[in-house]
Amino acid sequence: MMIVFVTVLTYVLYRLAKWLGNKYPILLFHPLIFTPGLIILVVYLSGMSFQEYQEGSVFLTHLLGPATISFAIPVYKHRAFLKKYFLLIVTSVLIGSVVAILSTLGFALLFGLEDMMVISLLPRSITTPLAIEVANEIGGVPALAIVFVIITGILGALMAPSIFKWLNIKSQMAKGLALGMSAHAVGTNRAFEYGEEAVTFSTLAMIFAGVITILLSLTVLPFIVAVI
């Protein structure tokens, strides 16, 4: 019963956020800001506990698994593209992933953030389902990692046009790879403004950044985290 209530409540408030976001494209109506905010309010007012809400959410959370697996489909569709640019994509995304992790770590330590915050920040530049995996792997907090991923996507997509202009970055390839690497799905959405090729590069960069960061989290990241 709780599962039905939580699923319906979450779905309805999600649709509402999407609808409002389409009408008024402001940050407040982002489905990962507006909807959780309202849910927290409803849970408080209804006297339900957050534990009960989480237990009721198993159906929705479960679908994250098949959704992540579905990233195979766009990669397959762009396989000709991938074959042609494989080395470039893998090399640049590997460099990008290392830069993302190290620069996050450096700035976070510089600003004196707490360990829990620092560790949860590390997977911020990859797509949410994979960031959750990385956060679990290295001892971060998934709920924090999600919020940091969203902020990253929004800020990345916002800054990208000015950075491209300053640095005179013109090709769709460079813009697409930079957007997908730095701002995952939100960046890919921005890539639509630059054209089909930028979108394809951005999609592939986003998925490869996720997989590469996961591989890093299984190998070198635990050593970095141990030093913090």
Binding site: Y14, L32, T61, A143, I146
Partner: peptide, 14 residues
């Protein structure tokens, strides 16, 4: 995709 993260995002309350 975003729909499936909402429960995890609600976890921020802790």
């Amino acid at each position: 995709l975003l729909l499936f993260f909402i429960p995890s995002a609600v976890g921020i309350i802790d």
